[in-house]
């Protein structure tokens, strides 16, 4: 029987927003094809309430591929597990989210499943002649590319924040184990330790709102207003390349062409001029607010809202205004 399979990525014992986005994409695609959605969980064990969560977002069946050696993500082992499952059940379609791990695993999966790979697409594939077409962003947000394939199995990765997770509860969900033992070859690149940075913070790649600071803030001691604005908005913090290069902020906060590429719902740029390399990493944000004291800053050209003002003067007032609004509208 045919289905749309989706890799239900587990991170720190839970399903992240990116997994729910992938599930929603799989549900939408499966509905168009008249197929069920099979959510595949790979690991040592499944998170609590796995079936409830996955069924809530549209899974008809939960496939568990569990093995002690799959406790840590190893791209080769996970890709082999998924490829073995797709082959055993002749599943023609698979969806992953384009997270760090999804990006690592999908190309290997596509080779071992002898499939085609559409990566970083921003909408569910649509039927077109004998195959499927989909859109992705190209040339640093300067173009949209329509891609086509009629090769099956078809593996797709969904760009982060391209799809809003939508509840689509299924009346019943079944569960099934798929037996898989990774080979020694698949386990060669072994994780031996993890260094977490600021686990209480929202990861940049997942954040719906990002507050970002640049050289206009004049020094690391002035980042308090960025942190506080991020806190009242429930946002992640980021910075421009020069700021990371001089060490005012850690490198993992650098967004832009050589840093992290993001597309949050709201990007607030404070004291960032908007060099083209910076825009390449953030220009697909759905709403952009620019605060800069230089009215000629190129960032204003791509902004939805702009404030020409001194950040040190206007940001504290913005924080107060948001607090006031939230106090008046929260019950």
């Amino acid at each position: 029987m045919s289905a749309v399979a989706v890799w239900a990525e587990v991170s720190e014992g839970r399903f992240k927003k990116s997994t729910l986005e992938a599930l929603t994409a799989a549900r939408t695609w499966a509905d168009a094809l008249g197929l069920p959605v099979w959510a595949v969980v790979i690991g040592k064990e499944v998170p609590q309430n796995t079936s409830q969560v996955l069924a809530e977002y549209g899974a008809d069946k939960v496939i568990r591929i569990l093995h002690p050696e799959l406790a840590e993500f190893i791209p080769a082992a996970y890709a082999r597990a998924m490829a073995a499952f797709l082959a055993a059940h002749k599943v023609p379609y698979a969806v992953l989210s384009q997270t760090y791990n999804g990006r690592a695993m999908a190309p290997m999966l596509s080779v071992w499943a002898d499939g085609a790979l559409l990566s970083g697409i921003v909408q569910v594939p649509e039927k077109e002649s004998a195959g499927f077409r989909a859109r992705r962003i190209a040339y640093s947000n300067k173009a949209i590319e329509w891609v086509y394939t009629d090769h099956l199995p078809l593996i797709v990765t969904m760009r982060a924040n391209a799809i809003i997770p939508a509840r689509a509860p299924r009346p019943s969900v079944s569960e099934e184990d798929f037996a898989f033992t990774p080979s020694a070859e698949d386990l060669r690149a072994r994780p031996v330790g993890v260094e977490k940075v600021a686990t209480d913070k929202i990861p940049l790649t997942e954040a719906e709102i990002v507050v970002s600071g640049g050289r206009g803030l004049k020094g690391p001691e002035n980042w308090g207003i960025i942190e506080e604005l991020a806190q009242v908005l429930g946002a992640a913090t980021a910075c421009s390349k020069p700021v990371a290069d001089v060490g005012w902020r850690p490198h993992h906060e650098h967004v832009g062409q050589t840093g992290i590429q993001i597309s949050p719902n709201l990007y607030i740029a404070i004291g960032i001029s908007g060099a083209i390399q910076h825009l390449a990493g953030v220009a697909s944000s759905k709403n952009i607010v620019v605060i800069n004291n230089d009215p000629e800053a190129p960032f204003f050209k791509v902004a939805d809202y702009g404030i020409v003002a001194d950040a040190f003067e206007v940001v504290p007032r913005l924080i107060e205004a948001i607090k006031k609004y939230k106090a008046e509208h929260t019950h």
Partner: peptide, 15 residues
């Protein structure tokens, strides 16, 4: 930086 697909290295490793 043209298509940002991250496809080629993983495919080469798998091949």
């Amino acid at each position: 930086i043209d298509y940002n697909g991250s496809q080629v290295p993983g495919m080469v490793a798998a091949l």
